[in-house]
Amino acid sequence: MNYKRITLLAGHYGSGKTNIAVNMAFRLKKDYEKVAIADIDIVNPYFRTKDSQTELEANGIKLICSEYANSNVDIPALPQEIYSVIDNKEVMAVVDIGGDDRGAYALGRYAPGIIEEGNYDMLFVVNKFRPLTPDARSTVEIMHEIEAAGKIKFTGIINNSNIGNETTADDVLDSLNYADEISRIACLPVVMTTVMAELFDALDGKIPNLFALKLQKKLS
């Protein structure tokens, strides 16, 4: 996949956005000097990009997140530094957006600047094994809700269909039809299929744009 300057990740909550965002930042760091990951999730106070703070910073990736993330202060705060990502055109950025339309509202205020620059991808993360997005139609319904709230149209789809550590290669292959159907209905390309690193070899060559994920663990 050719990365634009800003990659926005949105989707149904629990679809895997944060894990993909962190992995994508590590991938970008291989090709670019300045990489930032911005967490504008105002919905989920529990599992956040900040869980990977040590590893991100050790790799020279700038983490921008609310100073209240992972604290006991349960308020939907946004980091003021987010503008440094939008305004500084030398930075390659991954933006992790909160789940569903509720999470995407936070994106709306930054949307005009991002659209004006015009160097972004807005990617829709999907997982057919999540209970409220079992079929293409229900998934696209959520996609439209997110677009309306975030004020940016999606440009592509990431198929992250998985059932946690019980996922098999066949489960991933079975999900391709689901992703393709979303692609047809939404008129958007499937730009990436993400799988846990352990499944990569079994699927390599069978699926275009396969991306291996390392699970980011919460450390307490």
Partner: peptide
Amino acid sequence: MADKVLMKGNEAIAEA
């Protein structure tokens, strides 16, 4: 595993 879904604990309570 296709008969399973990936759920948060809270969602599992609600659906159950």
